[in-house]
Every structure is written in C-alpha cells, then in structure tokens.
C-alpha cells in the first residue's frame, strides 16, 4: 500500500512540474498506461488474499481517477495558455481605417424636412403634396388674394401664362385638400416654391416651404399656439421658447409670426441672432372664413389654423450655414457634412 501512496504522490508531483503537453502524455503512459505503474500494482494483486483484493482494487481505481483528474486539469491549463499565446500573436491595429464602402448623405433640406414630417405625423398629420405649376386660382384667389393684390405682381411671381404660374407658396395645397371635402383635416404639405428673387446669400428663386393646415370643429387660436410650441420644442429642443407677434396674411385672420429663442444663445442674444435672442421662423394664423367658404366649408361650423415654414430658413439656422447658395451648388465637401 505504501507503494500506491508513493506512486500517487510521485504522479501528482510530476504533473505539477510538467512543462508542456508532451510531458503530460509521458506521465499518462508512465502511470496509467498498459505498462504503467498502477497497472503493475494491479498485476501484483494476484499475490493478495481474497479479502484484500477488492480493497486494493478500489484504492488503485481511486488513485487512477485522482491522477486522471489532475492530468485533465493540467491539460486544460496548458490549452488555455496556448490559446492565449495564439491570440496575443494575432493582435491587430484596431485604429487602422475601416474598409466599408462610403455611404452618401442626404441634403440638409431633406434631413430637416424628415424631422419636421416625423413631428407632425406623430400628431396625426398627413403629408400631402400638390402641383408645383399651378393655376392662379389655387395660388392666389382661393387664398383670399384678389386679382389686384400687390403680392400677385410679376415682380414676385413667375408666370407661364395669365392663369398658370409657378406656385409661390405651398398654401395652394390647402385648397386642393379642402376641396376634397373630407373633414377634419390635419395635414402638412412640403414642396418646392418659386419667387422671382435674384440669387444671393439669403435668396433663391427656388426654395421649399412646409404648409400646415388643421380644420375641425372648435379649433382656436390657442390651439395654433399650442401646436406650434410643441413643434418648436420637438425640433429645436425642450428648452425652446416661442413668441407670437401679430402679422398680416390674406388667408388667415388673426395672423401671427412666430419667433423661437435662438438655438445658439437660448435667448440671451448673440451674434447669430443679431443680439435679439429670437429668430423669426414661420407665419401662421386662423384660417380666414372666406377661404373656407370658397372651398365649400361652412365657417360657422368649422374653424382651423394654418402655418407656413421656410425649409431653407430652418436648415440654415439649424446647421449654421451662412450662405443659401451652398444648398444648390452640390459641392461634395458641403454635402458630406450632413
């Protein structure tokens, strides 16, 4: 039995001292192999008495299991070390540039527009579009701008013929929508509009507007204020404040212009907002009853509000772009910044 103890101790020592997998194989052969030391102990059992044999047999088995377990554990350690070494050798410079193909960029107007659309879609508004080349009636007359109104002067409007023009405002889409006669209406209408302005840093003969229209029973001026405040906070940040100033538009009454606190200085006044703290962002108002009447809606039953936002104006402010011409030049170095 002392033999068995000695063998076990010897085996464990050797396993502890082993340096690699080869050494472990040798130990396995030496102790557990067919000609190994434990096997010889078993073989020597024939000399023992019948009572002792099972006892010794059991002890040999325990020793075998013990050695095997130690061997397995050591093997695991070696495998782990080998893997670690391998991984260490595979280290790469993760700061080298990636290889994915370059993706393009949406135009800043489109990015802004999608944000605006998402805000209003969330409030239950449909996004609808209308024709860019429009009848005079939809662009002016149906919006309460009579035939001799100065806004109709050729200096502002591009005409194709006496009755057909390039729309000067997306408000024309209001009329198409109201004429459908499906009430209530909650819609916004983004699109291109045209005014006869020479190209410079703040003007372009082609630009974009987003018109909004709500028609329902009991719509109030207060609803207009609340809706546009919500819009401003969502677009420019929760800490944005809004200010409504009286204004005049032919197709709304009462009418207002809305200012928002400057996104840069948050209303304190800076170079960006010319020290005023506020930036004019849109025109709006309660839909004029005559506009409703002309589209066949009874102003005694229904009221509504409308607003019009210049998309470029928001894009320019939002991204701090100082020259409108950049928006239509399509220089890759400009577009890639958005």
């Amino acid at each position: 039995m002392q033999d068995l103890d000695r063998i076990l101790k010897d085996a464990i020592n050797k396993i502890e001292e082993s340096k690699d997998m080869d050494a472990l194989s040798d130990i396995k052969v030496k102790f557990l192999g067919k000609k190994g030391e434990l096997t010889s102990v078993l073989k020597s059992m024939k000399d023992l008495s019948a009572e002792e044999r099972p006892k010794v047999g059991q002890m040999v088995n325990e020793a075998r299991n013990n050695i095997q377990e130690k061997l397995d554990k050591k093997k695991e350690e070696f495998e782990k070390a080998i893997l670690e070494k391998k991984l260490a050798g595979e280290t790469i410079d993760v700061t080298l540039p990636g290889k994915a193909s370059k993706i393009g960029h949406l135009h800043p107007n489109t990015s802004t527009l999608r944000e605006v659309c998402d805000i209003f879609i969330g409030m239950g508004y449909k996004v609808v579009e209308g024709p860019e080349i429009e009848y005079d009636y939809y662009n002016f007359e149906a919006l309460n701008i009579p035939a001799d109104h100065p806004a109709k002067d050729e200096q502002d409007t591009f005409y194709i013929s006496k009755d057909i023009l390039l729309r000067t405002q997306t408000s024309s889409v209001q009329v198409h929508e109201m004429e459908k006669g499906e009430l209530p209406i909650r819609m916004i209408s983004p699109g291109r509009v045209f005014r006869s302005d020479e190209v410079d840093a703040t003007h372009s003969p082609t630009f974009h507007q987003i018109e909004g229209l709500v028609i329902d029973k009991n719509i109030t001026f207060a609803d207009l204020k609340g809706t546009l405040q919500e819009f401003a906070k969502r677009l420019f940040g929760e800490d944005t404040r809004v200010k409504f100033r009286p204004h005049h538009f032919q197709f709304t009454e009462p009418s207002a212009e809305m200012d928002v606190t400057c996104f840069k200085c948050k209303g304190k006044g800076c170079r960006f907002c010319k020290g005023e703290g506020w930036i004019e962002i849109l025109g709006c108002g309660v839909v004029h009853p005559h506009v409703l009447e002309m589209s066949g809606i009874d102003p005694e039953e229904y009221t509504g509000f409308a607003f019009g936002v210049g998309l470029e104006r928001i894009s320019l402010f939002k991204y701090e772009i100082d020259d409108m011409r950049l928006l239509y030049e399509n220089d890759k170095r400009f577009l890639d910044q958005f």
Binding site: C117, F120, I121, G122, M123, G124, Y125, K126, V127, V128, E129, P184, R186, V214, D216, K217, N218, I219, T220, F221, A222, D223, K225, G226, T227, Q229, E230, K243, F244, R245, P246, A256
Partner: peptide, 19 residues
C-alpha cells in the same frame, strides 16, 4: 398674443403618415 393660452386641438384623432 402672449397671454392667449397654448392648447392642443381636441376632437377626433386622425391617423397621419406619408403618402
């Protein structure tokens, strides 16, 4: 104008979305 309250339109809900 600044003293007029700010509310949201009441009335039936509408489902918005893109065309």
């Amino acid at each position: 104008y600044d003293k007029i309250p700010m509310t949201l339109p009441k009335g039936a809900a509408t489902s918005g979305g893109y065309s």
